[in-house]
Simulated scan of single mutants.
Amino acid sequence: MTTHEREITEPVDLCLPGGRLNPAAVGWTRRPLHRTGLRGWGRAKRWEYWGIVTPGHVIGLVASSLDYAGVHGVYVLDRATGQETVRDAVVPFARGATLGAFGSAHVRGGGLSIDIDGSSIRATAPGVEVDVTVPLPPGHESLGVVVPWSTRRFQYTVKDLGRPAHGTLRLGSAEHTVDGFAVLDHGRGKWPYSIRWNWAAGCAPGRAIQLGGKWTDGTGSTENAVFVDGRLHKLGADLTWTYDRRDWLRPWRITGAGVDVTFHPFHERVARTNLLVVANETHQCFGHFTGWAALDDGSRVDLDGLTGWAEEAYNRW
């Protein structure tokens, strides 16, 4: 086996009645099993992020409640021209945001709306409309992980990679067909005030790779996995990320037990927010993967040709 972490196979509460982390919730799952009733205010963070990749475009949709603010966004990259369309909204105290159980989010504010209902995703903003379905194929598995910093600080994340994505994208008066794949980052937790993380996700027909770093290091939990034909193979080692902060478009290396990946960027997206109490800086690069990752039986899967992204994010929130 490629991980020492405990697999959870039955539904479990993320929190104890008083709001602290339930020790029985620490582990990983192949499908969403955690009930995420967060209590309290000030450190609770909730979000849904969908990244959609097609031959012509990359689409990013985020709906979030950070307690102090709702931070929502619609992002579109034209892969042929490099032109970015960015529509962001910051709503004080996350008014107009409802982030419920897994697969449900509805946010409004700043001229932007996002509605996520299971496999249906709709978003509208000035000059942009997204209407996409992301059906769940039979037997398709996702990675759920609880990361425990302490009994008061913890995060539940679900990374769901390689869902088929079909629908339409409207930019101004032009309508584009969406026919590609989608990746979900579902998050519920209580975070430290200042944190830095890495995230990489790449997909191709029948294969996908999900890798994380920095924020999970030393916790005993990781968000690393490789997927083959929808089947999850958990990777349990902390990884080493090597990249150039002076030139984000140089190749990235991600290595560790069971993983040897090189990421080759073709575009860098930079996002910054500074609202004094809440601040963020993210460098998200889109590109292609080469390398390999180990499966449960010790064999290796070739990752050459996967498309996706790698990022570094710093949050003060």
Rank of each mutant, 00 (worst) to 15 (best):
Gly291Ser: 02
Ala123Lys: 05
Gly51Val: 08
Met1Arg: 08
Arg79Asp: 00
His267Trp: 15
Ala101Gln: 12
Ala294Cys: 02
Gly180Thr: 01
Arg231Pro: 01
Arg170Val: 00
Thr255Cys: 11
Lys190Glu: 11
Ile59Pro: 03
Asn315Gln: 14
Asn224Cys: 02
Tyr49Gly: 05
Tyr75Asp: 09
Pro205Glu: 00
Leu143Gln: 01
Val107Arg: 06
Val147Arg: 05
Arg39Val: 07
Arg163Gln: 08
Gly27Tyr: 04
Gly230Cys: 06
Asn274Tyr: 05
Val178His: 01
Gly42Met: 12
Asp115Asn: 07
Thr216Glu: 15
Pro92Asp: 04
Val71Pro: 14
Tyr243Glu: 12
Thr81Ser: 15
Thr157Asp: 13
Pro205Ser: 02
Thr151Trp: 14
Ala69Pro: 10
Gly144Ser: 12
Arg245Ala: 13
Val130Asn: 06
Glu48Val: 14
Arg30Thr: 10
Glu48His: 13
Ala310Asn: 00
Ser194Thr: 12
Glu223Thr: 04
Asp297Met: 01
His72Lys: 03
Leu169Ser: 00
Val146Tyr: 10
Ala101Tyr: 07
Val146Lys: 03
Thr3Ala: 12
Ser104Leu: 13
Tyr243Asp: 09
Pro126Val: 08
Thr262Tyr: 04
Tyr49Leu: 12
Phe263Asn: 00
Arg20Ala: 09
Arg245Gln: 14
Trp309Phe: 10
Leu61Met: 05
Pro205Asn: 02
Val71Asn: 15
Gly206Ala: 00
Ala63Cys: 12
Asn198Gly: 08
Gly56Gln: 05
Val74Asn: 14
Gly73Lys: 10
Val261Tyr: 01
Gly73Leu: 14
Ala125His: 10
Tyr75Ala: 14
Phe181Cys: 08
Ser194Phe: 13
Gly236Arg: 00
Ala89Val: 02
Val145Leu: 10
Glu223Ala: 08
Asn280Leu: 10
His176Gly: 02
Ala225Asn: 02
Cys285Asp: 04
Gly298Ser: 05
Pro32Ile: 07
Ile121Tyr: 13
Gly236Met: 03
Ile59His: 08
Ala69Glu: 06
Gly162Arg: 03
Val130Pro: 12
Asp117Phe: 11
Pro92Ile: 07
Arg196Lys: 09
Pro17Val: 06
Thr85Glu: 05
Gly110Met: 02
Phe286Met: 09
Gly218Trp: 01
Gly73Val: 07
Val26Gly: 14
Thr177Leu: 06
Ser142Lys: 11
Gly19Arg: 09
Gly220Thr: 02
Thr168Arg: 15
Gly111Tyr: 06
Arg79Asn: 00
Val130Cys: 13
Thr9Ala: 15
Asn224Gln: 05
Arg87Gln: 14
Ala201Ile: 08
Cys15Lys: 04
Arg122Asn: 01
Pro126Lys: 13
Leu143Pro: 06
Leu21Ser: 07
